[in-house]
Computed example of a mutant assay.
Amino acid sequence: MNLPPSVLVIGTIFIDCKGFAWKNYHSFTRNLGNIQFVHGGVGRNVAENLANLDVATYFASSIDATAIGKEVVERLHKSNVNTDGLFESKQLGMGMWLAILDEKGDLAGSISQMPDLTLLQELISNKGKEMIRQSTHVALELDLNFQIAHSVIQLAAEEKKPIYGVPGNLDVILNHRELLDHLDCFICNNFEADLFFELNFTNLTTAQKLESLIQFVDRTGMGSMIVTLGEKGAVYYNPQTKEVGYQPVFPVKLVDSSGAGDAFFSGTVMGLVRGLSLKEAVICGTKVAGWTIESTENTCLDLPNKIKNDEFFIKLK
């Protein structure tokens, strides 16, 4: 009997300080605007998104044993995220991200403070096998450190669990590209693809992008790959099914572009774990990213209602 999909998300929690410029943003002078503190982190964003997309979600991360940490946990609980895999620490369990958004909602500058990753490394070392056994799929933030990424990928292979990867700061996977070979699906953006493909991927035509994507994936052992192109959509390729194509974006009103990549990853993973084709999963990812772009948060908290009223999602049921 096939079990319903359940995803173990392994990644970070951040608290984001976001500044939204009211008028044209100038980097060398004072700018009036609005400042907000919001919950973030690639792992946290993905876990909340998946749970709000009605996927059973188990989250493994480290978190501060503080009032803010408690607030993060309470919000995850409201989305029905299983937080039994959170490792509490007195300090540096969570990271911080300082972000400035220009008048259009695009990221103008940022500074990131990483959490102490040895905490999550210890959690994976002690409970990783058990957590992976309890889930049908694994979603991994790849750029934690090599030890975490290597251990999780190895454990997922031993337990025969599909694993989906999303990059963070790129330091780990650019130095250990062999990690990509073991992923069932890898999703990155066009600027990251410039580095992975070692060419000016961003400025290629769509046809050239697809050709480069096919060549890159065929040289590896990964199951499939998707490259997001910002407002220009996404390209995708699955060497097993030979699905290859381009997906444009849907019309949205840009409020805040941060979190869009995590949202795309979440929507796509939701589709894949439910057995959709890569093309259908990419449409799911594109829609979830669009809804997130229209929110000031890093995630769209109205996802349950969005998918209930969206024609494409309704047809999937």
Rank of each mutant, 00 (worst) to 15 (best):
residue 271 G to E: 02
residue 63 I to C: 08
residue 113 Q to G: 06
residue 72 V to K: 03
residue 251 P to I: 08
residue 243 E to L: 12
residue 132 I to E: 00
residue 89 S to M: 11
residue 200 N to M: 05
residue 60 A to H: 00
residue 264 F to R: 02
residue 151 S to Q: 10
residue 129 K to N: 14
residue 18 K to L: 15
residue 95 G to L: 03
residue 16 D to V: 11
residue 294 E to H: 11
residue 137 H to G: 06
residue 263 A to H: 04
residue 217 V to F: 09
residue 200 N to H: 09
residue 225 M to G: 05
residue 313 F to G: 14
residue 276 L to T: 04
residue 235 V to I: 14
residue 222 M to I: 03
residue 285 G to R: 09
residue 245 G to F: 08
residue 123 L to T: 02
residue 74 E to H: 14
residue 268 T to I: 05
residue 29 T to R: 09
residue 240 Q to W: 10
residue 292 T to K: 08
residue 40 G to T: 08
residue 291 W to P: 01
residue 293 I to K: 02
residue 131 M to Y: 01
residue 230 G to F: 04
residue 203 N to T: 13
residue 149 A to Q: 07
residue 179 L to A: 03
residue 83 T to L: 09
residue 132 I to V: 02
residue 119 L to C: 07
residue 316 L to C: 12
residue 73 V to Y: 02
residue 200 N to Y: 05
residue 38 V to Y: 06
residue 164 Y to E: 11
residue 18 K to G: 07
residue 291 W to F: 06
residue 52 N to R: 15
residue 78 K to M: 10
residue 6 S to F: 05
residue 298 N to Y: 05
residue 72 V to P: 00
residue 147 Q to V: 13
residue 72 V to I: 14
residue 12 T to V: 10
residue 238 N to K: 11
residue 142 L to G: 01
residue 15 I to W: 02
residue 261 G to N: 09
residue 250 F to W: 13
residue 223 G to M: 10
residue 262 D to N: 08
residue 101 L to P: 00
residue 42 V to W: 00
residue 176 H to L: 06
residue 298 N to I: 07
residue 147 Q to E: 15
residue 311 E to R: 14
residue 277 S to T: 11
residue 175 N to F: 07
residue 276 L to D: 09
residue 205 T to Y: 13
residue 243 E to N: 13
residue 251 P to V: 08
residue 9 V to S: 10
residue 102 D to Q: 09
residue 276 L to C: 10
residue 183 L to T: 06
residue 217 V to S: 09
residue 123 L to C: 05
residue 81 V to T: 04
residue 241 T to Y: 02
residue 40 G to P: 03
residue 276 L to W: 03
residue 284 C to H: 04
residue 220 T to V: 09
residue 201 F to S: 07
residue 215 Q to Y: 14
residue 34 N to P: 02
residue 271 G to I: 02
residue 153 I to M: 05
residue 76 L to D: 03
residue 137 H to V: 03
residue 295 S to F: 04
residue 130 E to P: 02
residue 56 A to M: 07
residue 179 L to R: 00
residue 103 E to L: 10
residue 25 Y to F: 15
residue 9 V to N: 06
residue 205 T to L: 14
residue 53 L to P: 00
